[in-house]
Amino acid sequence: MNQLLYANFSRLKKDIFFRIGVLFLFAMGILMPLSLFSNMKKYGYPIPLESGYCFYVLFMAIFSSVFCSLFIGTEYNDGTMRNKLIAGHSRIAVYFSFLIVSITAVFLMCLAYLVSSLCTGIPLLGFFSDAAFPVVLGHVGAIFILAVAFTAICTAVAMLCQNKATTATVCILGVFLLLFLGVYIHARLEEPEYYETYYLEAEEAIEENTSLTPNPSYISGTKRQVYEFLHDFLPGNQAVQLSSLSAVHLWKMSFYSLLIAVAATGTGIYIFYRENIN
């Protein structure tokens, strides 16, 4: 296992997609506070550092799918996965070595953002407000755990699919699908129960009246409970909530992320152990 980790980490150092991911998120970390600072100057009102701070979670999800599918896909594409098995390494060790390296790579991408955004943001916008600091800290922690879930899913797909192009397509499309589903469910849950209807009565004097009209798009009952569960459970939904710093059930979400990671890895190892490698 140590030998596999050593070999995979040395490959990671030279991996072009890992470098691109780190550089991209590092650049994002600089551009986000700069953009906020520019808006602050333009409109003349203070913008705190925490606004939009966790938006990088969406890029983390996309980059984890790109990185895992290409890093592990190369092993099948170039046939080097065979070398590891021929050399007598167990399939479980091979699987875990890729999972650990992939999680580390995605963590490093996230760290690149955090470091650059803090270094740029604090001098321009000041530190987080006292009230926001624990919220941001909680969200950043949940993002790291969510990164484990995303990476575990993508690693499972990449380890079980022996075609690099198919792996990349499935992983990237899958992550986008999860994110779109997240946005959709988020939007449905945000629908108000009632509309406020304004109307004017002009008999003797003009009078302004309001009344509450039920919103037909509002989800209620069991369906709402299912949507709320999915909103906390699905990685794409978690990413949407975390990106807007609006997640309420952080502990529950992190527990679900770990559950997903364990389930994906368990299933991945079970199938990979029995898989015929070409």
Partner: peptide, 28 residues
């Protein structure tokens, strides 16, 4: 044992020396 099954199992983006170093690391 060593084997070359069907196509050579080599990292195409690496040089010959880098490929061998990677194999050395993997073998410990």
């Amino acid at each position: 044992i060593g084997a070359v099954v069907e196509t050579p199992s080599i990292y195409l983006h690496m040089t010959a020396e880098e490929n061998l170093k990677e194999q050395y690391r993997m073998l410990g």
